[in-house]
Structure formats: structure tokens, C-alpha cells
Simulated scan of single mutants.
Amino acid sequence: MGTIESALLTTDRPSIYCRYVDDILVRVKNLQELQNLCQRFINATGLNFTYEESSNRRLPFLDILVTARNSGFKTTVFTKPTSQGLCLNGDNECPKRYLTSAFSAYKRTMNWRELPKF
């Protein structure tokens, strides 16, 4: 994907373009520019690309809610409304730092009474 991005984004590069695996956060001037960019990727790769527009200047990206402000962006933890608050089992083969990080994030963002089951 990096090679394709390098070739496609040499001209008309969006002011913000961030990708993590198969999720892309992009800032464009208008819907037409977004649709054109999406079509360029479809033509170059044959893959299906979909997009989601921001609502009230807010857009969830991965587990982050990105809110556009006049002077930049504000980010907060985003939890889907369907989330049951479950996490990885702490006894699995996942590195200990992931468990510690997940627990710390929940501690900072949730009420202790709503703490998920580990």
C-alpha cells in the first residue's frame, strides 16, 4: 500500500493523510475531492474503498474520536455504542504491556463502577 500511496499522492495530496493498516484518516476540502481520491485508489488497486464523513466536525477513527477545532484537533477515547466493555484475557499470550495499557486506558476514561470484566 505504501508504494501505491507514494505514486498516487505525488500530486493533489490531501493536507492530512494518515493510514493504519486498512483505515485511512484524510482531510479534504469537499466531498468531491474525497470521491476523486477514493476513485484514484480504486482504479490503482482494484480494491473497494468506502468512506465516512464527519458529523458535527467529529469523526471516530480507530478507537479515537477526532473533533475538528479552529486551531487544530481534539482527541478523546471513542467507544462504540455496542461495546460490552470486554477486554483481552490477562492470562493469554499477549505481552504484559498490552494488558497494562488497556487497564490504564479504562482507568482514565471510565467510572470505576463500570470497569470491564477481565
Rank of each mutant, 00 (worst) to 15 (best):
S15Y: 01
I16Y: 01
Y17S: 09
C18N: 03
V21G: 10
V21I: 14
D23T: 05
D23W: 00
L25S: 02
L25Q: 02
R27E: 13
R27N: 05
R27H: 08
K29P: 05
K29N: 06
L31Q: 14
L31W: 07
Q32R: 15
Q32Y: 06
E33K: 13
L34R: 12
Q35W: 02
N36Y: 08
L37Q: 10
C38M: 14
I42W: 02
N43W: 15
N43V: 05
A44S: 09
T45I: 12
G46V: 04
G46D: 12
L47H: 02
L47V: 00
N48S: 10
F49A: 08
F49Q: 08
T50H: 02
S54W: 09
S55N: 09
S55F: 11
S55G: 04
S55A: 11
N56E: 14
R57Q: 12
R57E: 13
R57G: 02
R57I: 07
R58E: 15
R58Q: 15
R58F: 08
P60L: 08
F61N: 13
F61K: 15
L62F: 08
I64L: 13
L65N: 07
V66E: 00
T67Q: 14
A68F: 02
N70P: 00
N70F: 13
N70Y: 11
S71C: 10
G72I: 06
K74F: 09
K74P: 00
T76F: 03
V77R: 12
V77E: 14
T79Y: 11
K80F: 00
K80M: 05
P81Q: 05
S83W: 11
Q84P: 00
Q84S: 09
Q84E: 12
Q84R: 01
G85V: 03
G85Q: 04
L86H: 04
L86G: 09
L86F: 04
L86A: 11
C87H: 03
N89I: 13
D91W: 04
D91M: 11
N92D: 08
E93R: 15
E93Y: 15
C94S: 12
P95L: 08
R97L: 09
R97V: 10
R97W: 11
Y98N: 13
L99T: 03
L99C: 06
T100H: 03
S101K: 02
